[in-house]
């Protein structure tokens, strides 16, 4: 089957074409399911942060170009597509609408089903597909999300159960705010992490682990109070050491509870080298296989939506309610594979 997928939940608009020869949802692998194209356009990081309306305008403007590029790169015609899919949520309302309208009209015009996909589930599924994991403990770290989750049976059905998460801001937002407030270049997580590597002196900062859960706002305000009093590099270094250590510790707590044999980190922040290093040390200590989602599939893109849609199609699990859902959680619905 061929699937066209659209992603537009936040700062990225993307279109991907996926081809799968898998016989069942659990058999989906890199060998039988290929990404034919995976095109994106990203709204550039700005000092003022993100304004929902501007993001949506950007997506609407870029969508036709991205769509054409995805089709031509994949050498696939719209008529060859068996299913259309889109990222249903969670995300920014204005942005979600762009993907929804795009996918819905393609589905209606071509007379093919529309598969709504949970964006968070998609981050997990693309990681499992790319790294060949069967049942990993997953750490999903992106802008607004910091979740530690694993498949868990609840009342007879499988769910991605969230065992630990942030109780205030997502770790990516924390890194972005630090980069912006310290006026780094670029003024976001990337600038922050690059400067953190140059830090020398470790400054004590509040270390918050609440059981399996995390909180970053206390760390954020304490770190920003040091602005101007210490070199920015030392502030970045110390704040990233503390933030990542609390994240790895919370993960270790969950791992001791669930006993998974594989661990996988997904989402944009999974690209942070120091975080990967910490996780590999922790995983080795527990004899757990550790994988990191490859960079192309770490941030938001549409291939993850398409891979997940393949699993939905193969398990005949297509939600009736196709409209965007801003506050969808990963545990909002059962997982049928």
């Amino acid at each position: 089957m061929k699937i066209l997928a659209i992603e537009s939940t936040a700062h990225t608009i993307g279109v991907a074409i996926i081809e799968s020869k898998a016989k069942s949802a659990t058999a989906v692998s890199k060998a039988n399911t290929k990404v034919l194209s995976n095109e994106i356009a990203r709204y550039p990081a700005k000092l003022e942060g993100f304004i929902p309306r501007k993001l949506a305008d950007h997506h609407a403007k870029e969508y036709p170009r991205v769509l054409r590029a995805a089709l031509s790169k994949a050498k696939v015609a719209l008529a060859d597509i068996d299913y259309f899919s889109y990222s249903q949520g969670p995300g920014i309302g204005h942005c979600l609408r762009v993907g929804f309208v795009g996918a819905r009209s393609l589905s209606l015009l071509n007379g093919k089903p529309l598969i709504p996909v949970n964006h968070t589930v998609a981050h997990v599924e693309v990681g499992k597909w790319a790294c060949g994991c069967a049942d990993p403990l997953v750490v999903y770290v992106s802008g607004g999300n910091t979740q530690i989750l694993a498949k868990h049976v609840e009342r007879g059905a499988n769910y991605y159960h969230v065992f630990g998460e942030t109780l205030d801001v997502g770790i990516g937002n924390f890194l972005d705010v630090m980069g912006r407030e310290l006026a780094l270049s670029p003024p976001n997580a990337i600038g922050f992490l690059a400067l953190a590597e140059k830090g020398k002196e470790f400054l004590q900062l509040p270390y918050t682990v609440k059981g399996n859960n995390l909180a970053f706002s206390g760390l954020q305000s304490a770190a920003l109070r040091l602005k101007g009093k210490h070199p920015s590099a030392d502030i970045c270094f110390s704040a990233s050491e503390v933030a990542f250590s609390t994240l790895v510790e919370a993960t270790e707590r969950v791992l001791c509870h669930t006993g998974n044999k594989e661990m996988l980190i997904v989402g944009g922040v999974a690209q942070a080298k120091r975080l990967q290093q910490m996780y590999s040390l922790m995983a080795a200590d527990h004899g757990v296989r550790f994988s990191v989602v490859p960079p192309v599939y770490a941030g938001d893109q549409a291939a993850m939506i398409g891979i997940t849609a393949v699993k939905h199609a193969l398990s005949k699990d297509i939600r009736r309610d196709v409209s965007p859902n801003q506050s969808m959680r990963i545990d909002s619905h059962a997982i049928r594979w």
Partner: peptide, 10 residues
């Protein structure tokens, strides 16, 4: 309630 909000405000 706040956790639900955090998960939607990407």
């Amino acid at each position: 309630a706040r956790m639900r909000y955090a998960s939607q405000s990407q």
